[in-house]
Simulated assay, not measured.
Amino acid sequence: MSEIRPFANAPEIHLNPRFALMGLGALFLLVGVYSGIYQVPAESVAVVQRFGGYLKTETPGLHIKLPWGIDQVTEVEILRQQKLEFGFGTRGATNPYQYADSNNQEEEKTMVTGDLNTAMVEWVVQYHISDPVAYVFNFREPVPTLRDLSQAVMREVVGDRTVDEVLTIGRQEMETRCAERLRELVAALNMGVRIDQIQLGNINPPDDVKSSFNDVNRAKQEKESSINAASGNYNQIIPKARGEAEQKIKGAEGYAAKRINEAEGDAARFKSVLAEYLKAPDVTKKRLYLETMSEVLSQVPGKIILDDKASSFLPLMNLRQATPQTTPAPATR
């Protein structure tokens, strides 16, 4: 039997070493050109490192770098506001460090207040990168470090306040204090980020005592409502009483002023009459008599004045005769 050899009739391929080297060189050059071109997004800048050291910062657009790992580019989003969530998590976040996993969320929001009570505090830290070079070089993991600092600051602030302040009236003051303290730490560590604001979310007591806390808060609200109602009645009644008292005082003062002015006027009139009387007693006396009689007699109806020398007043009786009444004529049939 004859031996069967596979591909016995296949043509032999001879590789030219020169062409092979040129092909490898072209491929190497193509890979280098492709890896040497990069694009920076509009909201970011690129921190370029050469052999691990800082070289430059590139603005958004198309740029070229040395390939094969000589230059390394780190994109940093400086125009985008980022946030860190504590105690809860919003799904779909692009930042892997935006929130902790579900197992750690319960732990990070459980805090002890200054009066040794427990509160469940949720909050959000909003920040943006202000110095990309410091952000890249000063910390190996800047975002996890910022999360740890935020938790430390919040626990410090909550630990300085009572549970009533944390749950009710102290929210705004806590947000302000936490933001100030975190800005101080970030600036001291030169992390390259700027804290925009801190917003507190849900603050609740633990589930075991939540109903008791709700009863206490309800009682406090009823107390405040009663105090406000009493204050409203007080503000309504007291000003009214004060106004009425002021009105009566003003009325009494006006009446007193009127009586004083009348008395002073009468006294001045009497003095003027007295002065005239002293000048001509008979004339003044007669004038006063006539004026007085004029006032008195004008009030008396049906009066007749006679001369003391008249012998009789009978002829004068006909001066006031009654008007005769007309008798109606009898009706005719």
Rank of each mutant, 00 (worst) to 15 (best):
T326D: 11
K109I: 00
M174F: 04
G243A: 10
E77L: 13
S212H: 09
Y54R: 05
K223V: 06
M22L: 12
F270D: 14
V40N: 10
Y234S: 07
K65P: 01
D101H: 09
V166Q: 00
L30M: 10
T323C: 12
N190T: 14
S294F: 06
E224A: 13
I203N: 01
P41M: 11
V125F: 03
K248E: 15
L189S: 06
G170K: 01
V143W: 02
M191V: 04
E3P: 01
L167D: 00
V40R: 09
E180Q: 13
T118H: 03
R333L: 09
S311E: 15
N95K: 06
M317V: 14
A179L: 04
R140E: 08
L66F: 06
Q172D: 12
L24M: 09
I13A: 09
T332G: 09
K258W: 14
A245I: 03
Q321M: 13
K279Q: 15
Q197M: 05
L79A: 15
D115C: 02
P315Y: 05
M111A: 08
I64D: 03
E244W: 07
P324N: 05
E85I: 06
V157H: 01
V216R: 08
V153N: 00
S130I: 07
R5W: 04
G265N: 13
Y38M: 07
S212K: 14
P60L: 05
N261Q: 15
I305R: 05
K279A: 12
N103D: 13
R259I: 10
R91M: 08
F88P: 01
E77V: 03
D160H: 03
T113V: 07
